[in-house]
């Protein structure tokens, strides 16, 4: 499927020129967060993008520090939401097109939910909340999906302390206990 008319349609929808990268089934389009839901809805309704392959998030805080890499994150927006869509022909079972949408948000913003468009987005949005702390609008009571309710913070944020542990039972700092040494790397009995 030729993506050019789709891209121009989305540009018209967003009312601004959009940056696209990649080509063919790797095309990624960056849309403003306020228009992300509208773009997904539009792609589903008008262009047959009927499968939500993934909805996830990337934290770019500190990206490229000390390296040649330049962070693609716009000023003040550290999280990139990624919507990956696929147009599947139900008759033939063939994939007609793939398209990814990027949308940059900050930690405080509440992007619109798409779980009414794609029921699969329900758990994916919960995962984004659980891991990154990006909450979607219209779901004020969102629950964690992977971590337990007692857990505080969002572990995949770059500023989550890498050594922080929140066990439900057992010691909070397990590093203090006796460790197995390489010499013990065979089955052994503890008296």
């Amino acid at each position: 499927m030729d993506l050019a008319p789709i891209l121009s349609d989305i540009e018209a929808l967003c009312g601004a020129p959009l940056s696209a990268r990649g080509a063919g089934s790797d095309t990624v389009l960056t849309v403003p967060p306020a228009k992300a839901r509208a773009a997904v809805e539009f792609l589903k309704a008008k262009h047959g993008f009927n499968v939500l392959v993934d909805l996830t998030c990337v934290d770019y805080q500190g990206f490229g520090k000390g390296t040649q890499n330049v962070s693609p994150a716009p000023e003040g927006r550290r999280f990139k939401l990624v919507y990956r869509l696929m147009a599947l022909d139900a008759g033939t079972g063939l994939i007609k097109a793939r398209l990814a949408l990027d949308s940059w948000v900050d930690g405080e913003s509440v992007p619109a939910t798409i779980k009414d468009l794609f029921p699969a987005a329900d758990w994916l949005e919960r995962e984004v909340w659980d891991m990154f702390g990006v909450r979607f609008a219209d779901r004020p009571d969102v629950k964690r999906i992977l971590m337990y309710p007692e857990f505080t913070g969002h572990p995949l944020r770059k500023d989550y302390p890498i050594k922080k542990r929140q066990p439900l039972i057992g010691p909070a700092d397990a590093s203090a206990r006796e460790r197995l040494s390489p010499a013990d790397l065979r089955p052994r009995i503890v008296e």
Binding site: Y160, G170, S175, V190
Partner: peptide, 30 residues
């Protein structure tokens, strides 16, 4: 990492440790 218990002997008494990732069946039999 944040998700994993650093050894189950932090939560219950362990009698036998069988290391390996995964352990070979011979190791388990030993």
């Amino acid at each position: 990492n944040y998700a994993t218990v650093q050894g189950i002997d932090t939560i219950l008494p362990v009698d036998l440790y069988i290391p390996g990732c995964p352990p070979r069946p011979e190791t388990v039999l030993e």
